[in-house]
């Protein structure tokens, strides 16, 4: 318990420092983009947040498989925490994306593959959290959530493919052939990426800790009764 708290604090401190560095890099260090100007600086937050949301859903997917294979409660706690944090990050992606789209494309929303995939993902994991809250039995809740955690994540590439064929206007910054980014911009981006990954780790540790505390409280409550 103590070790986990210490790790959580260390991670939170590190992610705070990294976040300050990321803000400096994004707003001051990185050069101004030619066509979009200062507007493009939201990129250093929008894209890492999106990637971190996908990482979080990926963690929930792996933890869901872990739960079904082992039936250990801690996997379920991890899956729940990761899905919840992923949902928060997905909301942030949609919000920053809408702000950027409004300024760059003069519209709050476009049915572009990445935006739409994120929205569909957001809906799937909203369903995941609703499913969790409407099952009382712990074992059953964990099993159902794990099944949906797997189905939902398997859907991601299919959703993306379907919508990509459907339409696209999103700029492609990262291609298989290389990165379409100035070196200084790439540095700023990587710092932001690290900062948000650290934030994800800090939030996960805190959230999983909360989960196990809640379990302990439940256990003690039952013993008193």
């Amino acid at each position: 318990m103590i070790a986990r708290e210490r790790a959580g604090l260390a991670l939170a401190g590190l992610s705070g420092l990294a976040m300050l560095a990321a803000i400096y890099m994004a707003l001051v260090y990185a050069p101004t983009e030619r066509t979009m100007g200062a507007l493009q600086r939201i990129f250093y937050f929008h894209v890492p947040v999106a990637m971190v949301a996908f990482v979080a859903f990926g963690v929930a997917f792996v933890a869901s498989i872990g739960y079904l294979v082992s039936a250990e409660q801690r996997w379920d706690g991890l899956a729940h925490s990761a899905a919840e944090i992923g949902e928060v990050f997905a909301s942030l992606v949609l919000l920053t994306g809408m702000l950027w789209a409004r300024a760059a494309w003069n519209t709050w929303w476009t049915w572009d593959p990445r935006l739409t995939t994120t929205l569909v993902l957001w809906l799937i994991y909203a369903g995941y959290l609703m499913l969790r809250s409407s099952v009382e039995d712990e074992m059953r809740r964990a099993r159902y959530a794990a099944v949906l955690g797997i189905i939902g994540f398997l859907d991601v590439p299919v959703v993306f493919m379907a919508i990509r064929w459907w339409r696209t206007i999103h700029p492609v910054v990262f291609e298989a052939s290389g990165v379409n980014l100035e070196p200084a911009m790439l540095t700023a981006f990587m710092v932001a990426m690290v900062a948000f990954l650290l934030l994800l780790a800090a939030l996960l540790v805190a959230r999983v800790g909360l989960e196990s505390l809640a379990e302990e409280v439940e256990f003690l409550r039952r013993r008193v009764q």
């Binding site: 569909v120 809906l123 369903g127 609703m130 499913l131 189905i151 859907d155």
Partner: peptide, 10 residues
């Protein structure tokens, strides 16, 4: 519908 429709989008 909340679980099935988003998954069925593609």
């Amino acid at each position: 519908p909340i679980l099935l429709l988003p998954v069925s989008v593609p």
